[in-house]
């Protein structure tokens, strides 16, 4: 693929991201003109606009971008690891673990209001559990990992449901959280999440070529010199860290991690060196736009951003599948 075409893709994705950020900041119950947004971003002052921008809207928009980018890259990594284009960041039990973690936190120490940290810990713990369960004779088969992740997910979800039945007063809080939402994110929360996701990205980036090799299967990757078991562990850990960090900030936002790597792959090809940066930009831009849409639903008012991503991502994914079945061949 021509280098120039990739450069154009990057430029467009970055422009979209910048536009999404600006529109996200400008948009809200009190609209602020774009010109003012740019001016106050460059030179904050004590005006009410500046406070709204810096204290309320910018952290929320930044949260959307960080979560979208992190989930999208985590999805791309999981797809390479499992050699399966239908994998998403939650596939090995992270979502169920996050749900249980949030519910436990809410039930045991409601005063702390610790759903987000609970979810973070739960997501990571569930992935670790799936990983340990799928270990056999010193090696982990990725197929077993998917199955173990599914089983762990089913069990943890059952426990969560059980707990929710016993503590019905928490139902709405947990339910709202599970739908995914970024409202009310603060700078300190965004910072925690951003640092963790940046760490995940830094871990993943040097392994881009190993991920390319893994697309050819574990055996071929082995022959090409990839330390398959170690690389898989590192990548799984990094993807789960990014997923958990995203969940910490936003609850369970679906479809970003599944669909964005697909779109990026169609544009830049499956070579992870070129796929990962574009995936991040697209994921960040997409979730920021989705957040704007979520805030401005007529009549009903704001809805959780997870609903918007599902409404946009679901049909897109279906159309991909349908087009795919008409044109026999590889995944985009």
């Amino acid at each position: 693929m021509a280098v120039s075409r990739r450069a154009v893709n990057y430029a467009v994705a970055l422009a979209l991201l910048a536009l999404a950020l600006l529109l996200g900041i400008a948009h809200g119950p009190t609209p602020i003109p774009l010109g003012t947004v740019v001016r106050r971003l460059l030179a904050p002052n004590r005006s009410i606009d500046s406070v709204i921008i810096w204290e309320i809207r910018f952290p929320m928009v930044a949260a959307a971008a960080v979560v979208g980018g992190g989930l999208a890259v985590a999805g791309a990594v999981m797809q390479a690891l499992l050699k399966n284009p239908l994998a998403d960041p939650y596939i090995v039990g992270a979502s169920a673990g996050a749900g249980l973690g949030a519910t436990l936190a809410q039930d045991l120490v409601p005063a702390l209001n610790a759903m987000a940290p609970g979810a973070f810990v739960g997501a990571l713990a569930a992935v670790c559990l799936s990983y340990l369960l799928s270990r056999g004779r010193g090696t982990v088969s990725m197929l077993t990992l998917i199955l173990a992740g599914y089983a762990v997910g089913v069990i943890l979800t059952a426990v969560t449901t059980f707990l929710m039945l016993f503590n019905q007063q928490d139902l709405s809080a947990i339910f709202a959280w599970e739908l995914g939402g970024i409202d009310g994110a603060t700078w300190s929360q965004v910072l925690v999440s951003a640092v963790l996701i940046a760490a995940g990205l830094a871990v993943v980036w040097p392994f881009a070529h190993d991920m390319n090799a893994l697309l050819l299967g574990e055996e071929e990757a082995h022959h090409l010199g990839v330390n398959v078991q170690r690389v898989q562990f590192v990548l799984l850990f990094a993807a789960s860290l990014m997923t958990a960090a995203a969940v910490y900030l936003s609850g369970l936002v679906g479809f970003v991690g599944l669909v964005m790597p697909h779109i990026a792959r169609r544009l830049n090809g499956p070579n992870h060196r070129h796929l990962l940066p574009l995936t991040f930009c697209l994921g960040a831009a997409f979730l920021t736009f989705a957040q704007i849409v979520a805030e401005s639903v007529p009549v009903i008012g704001p809805i959780p951003v997870g609903l918007v991503t599902a409404c946009l991502g679901g049909p897109y994914f279906l159309s991909l599948l349908i087009r795919q079945s008409h044109r026999a061949g590889g995944w985009p």
């Binding site: 050699k83 284009p85 090799a213 071929e220 792959r265 070579n271």
Partner: peptide
């Protein structure tokens, strides 16, 4: 070898030099 991911011929062949990559290359 079966894969569904559209790596180009050149990208697959280049993986032959993966074991020589230094940290700088990575």
């Amino acid at each position: 070898l079966e894969t569904t991911f559209d790596l180009t011929v050149e990208e697959v062949v280049q993986l032959g030099s993966l074991h020589r990559y230094t940290w700088r290359d990575r």
